[in-house]
Design a protein around this nucleic acid. Structure first.
Lengths: 221, 221
DNA sequence: GCACGCATTTTGATTAGTCAAAGTATAAAT
DNA sequence: ATTTATACTTTGACTAATCAAAATGCGTGC
């Protein structure tokens, strides 16, 4: 059985993976808040267990086995978040931290019950897709408020910024997955984007924050 | 913050405490499935943190601080068990193991929500009392099927045997806290007890098993 | 009053995970 | 082609938790 530390490494590698590029030690170290030397040491361990392929000084990639474990952890994380918000009425800005601990303690049996209780949801409260029990994950590529067309109405799909502060702000402004919004202006030099919500309210965001909000054209589902 | 190992030691000491007697190394070691030497080592550590008083070669006792932590863990354990049975419809024979892991991962904030969702229950599915958030625990002394009067109807209060096999058997036989039952015969030499349920069904138990079922006179609540 | 048995304590070693700091490879820049 | 910046790897050390096995203290019985 994978320890909860191993689960965290695998999950981080999955989340930092884009396409089939290798994931660097630095990225993993940053994601987990450890020094790079620690990551190198752990990567040898994971490679021995055939959970990753390690190309020294280049990076790592999950094997199929490693990927399945990582997806299972991610599934737990996101279902727990959904449960905490939907059933226990907690605020979406606080559930990430809770799920971070619970994802390692909850069994598949309990998770299946929670999944059923929630009606087999496909996304969590932040709009992140929930991997299926079989390990399928929707990896659709979306525009963000930093890249989408101006003036066209779009549907909010996902908020990838996990900081509690930003999420609290977003909720107050009704910037929530499912809402329909429209980019009014985007000023490169100023690094700012203004968007208008369904309820006519106008909000201004920095480029970094705008980039963390994924959207799809309003008719897509 | 107490590690989850420390929480387990404190919880075990609380559960093995009777009156104000000291708890021996052997009891703790047995309860946790470790060798006695390991317990001695850990007791020094806990004593330094003022979580227990350690009387070498005699035993240990929880301090007020240690007791509060232990009660909080026990509260989590029992509320989680109740949640798993009441909300997720799991079998009471399987929830102990689940709660054993979850009790260390769940925050007080989440626990309070679960407590409210369940309607602030006073006992878990096995009839074990749930400590209050303030750390009050009902330590009532009860008769058991091995000691109570013959023929008098009694109400089942609690099943202290945690083995999954016995709990499955108990559930099939409707030996569940809340039920009213009556001891028909008790044979010391044979070490057996027969009881009759509300529905006239008769069940025979060994002395050890009978002793794990606590009862109160049928009118008490 | 002495020895015996037994629980407890001590000692030395192991594993998982981590850091600080020194050493090394490599791609980019001159 | 040599230098340099930077990321990666290695090394040595530390903590928490554990075990096996040897050493120790102590109440009981004789």
């Amino acid at each position: 059985m994978a320890t909860s530390t191993v689960e965290d490494y695998l999950k981080t590698i999955l989340l930092k993976s884009t396409g089939d590029e290798l994931v660097s030690m630095g990225k993993i170290a940053e994601g987990l808040g450890v020094v790079p030397g620690t990551v190198t040491t752990m990567m040898k361990n994971l490679a021995e267990q055939a959970l990753i392929e390690h190309y020294p000084r280049q990076g790592v990639r999950l094997t199929e086995r490693g990927r399945l474990i990582a997806l299972n952890v991610l599934r737990k994380h996101r279902l727990i978040e959904t449960f905490l918000v939907a059933t226990l009425k907690m605020d979406w800005s606080e559930v990430h931290v809770e799920a971070e601990r619970l994802e390692h303690a909850i069994s598949d049996a309990v998770l299946d019950r929670i999944d059923a209780l929630l009606g087999n949801p496909e996304t969590d409260p932040h709009g992140d897709p929930i991997p299926s029990r079989q390990g399928k994950l929707d990896t659709g590529i979306y525009d963000t408020l930093a890249t989408c067309a101006i003036d066209a109405p779009v549907r909010m799909v996902r908020v990838t910024d996990q900081s509690s502060d930003f999420l609290q702000f977003a909720e107050r402004q009704k910037l929530i997955p499912g809402e329909t919004i429209r980019v009014l202006t985007r000023t490169e030099v100023a690094g700012s984007v203004t968007v208008q919500l369904d309820n006519r309210q106008v909000v201004t965001l920095g480029f970094r924050q705008a980039g963390s909000i994924q959207v799809a054209s309003a008719g897509t589902g």
